[in-house]
Simulated scan of single mutants.
Amino acid sequence: MDLDDQLRRYFGTADLSAVPPQALAAGIEKMQVDLGLERDRARRFALWALLHTLGAAPDLDIAFKDEADRDAARNFMDLAEGSGLPPSSD
């Protein structure tokens, strides 16, 4: 999944600073719905990671049934924290 493609898909632009607050909220809601429907593990993880970056990711035990996926998500969260990405509300 290409990040710019995902941003354009959910927000209409790859520049999040250009997205009005209501459109941002609507895009996040759509992503959360798609996360719940997605069955491909890699696509599901990519959606969750973007939601995490936006501070809107569901808890790991809700998002991932597989322990290995939860561990990968924890690793992502640690890496994101070390990189200066904003923390999620998890």
Rank of each mutant, 00 (worst) to 15 (best):
R8G: 01
P58H: 12
L47A: 08
R74F: 10
A63I: 03
D61K: 13
L35I: 06
R74Y: 07
A42E: 14
L3E: 14
A63Q: 10
L37A: 15
Q6A: 11
V33I: 09
D5T: 06
E81L: 12
D66P: 00
G55I: 02
L3D: 11
D78F: 08
D15T: 01
Q22F: 08
A68S: 12
A73L: 10
A23S: 08
R74S: 08
R9D: 05
R70Y: 07
G12R: 06
P21H: 05
P87M: 10
L51G: 10
G27F: 01
E29T: 11
S89G: 11
R70W: 11
A49Q: 14
R43W: 00
S83D: 13
R70Q: 15
A80N: 10
A80P: 07
S88E: 14
L24I: 00
S83T: 09
E38Q: 14
A49R: 14
P86V: 02
D2M: 05
I28G: 01
D66W: 02
Y10E: 04
K65N: 13
I28T: 13
Q32Y: 03
A56S: 14
L60V: 07
A72C: 08
F64T: 07
I62E: 15
Q22H: 08
E67R: 14
A14P: 07
E81R: 15
Q32C: 05
L85N: 10
T53V: 09
D4F: 06
L47Y: 09
S83I: 00
L16P: 05
D90G: 14
E67F: 10
G27S: 07
A73G: 10
A46C: 01
L7I: 01
R43L: 08
H52E: 15
P58M: 09
G84K: 04
L47E: 05
A68N: 09
K65V: 09
S88N: 15
S83G: 07
S89A: 15
D15N: 09
R8H: 09
A18L: 07
L47I: 04
F76L: 12
A56Y: 01
R41F: 04
R9M: 05
P58E: 11
A26I: 00
D66Q: 13
D69R: 05
G55C: 03
D78H: 13
V33Q: 13
R44D: 08
T53M: 12
P21G: 04
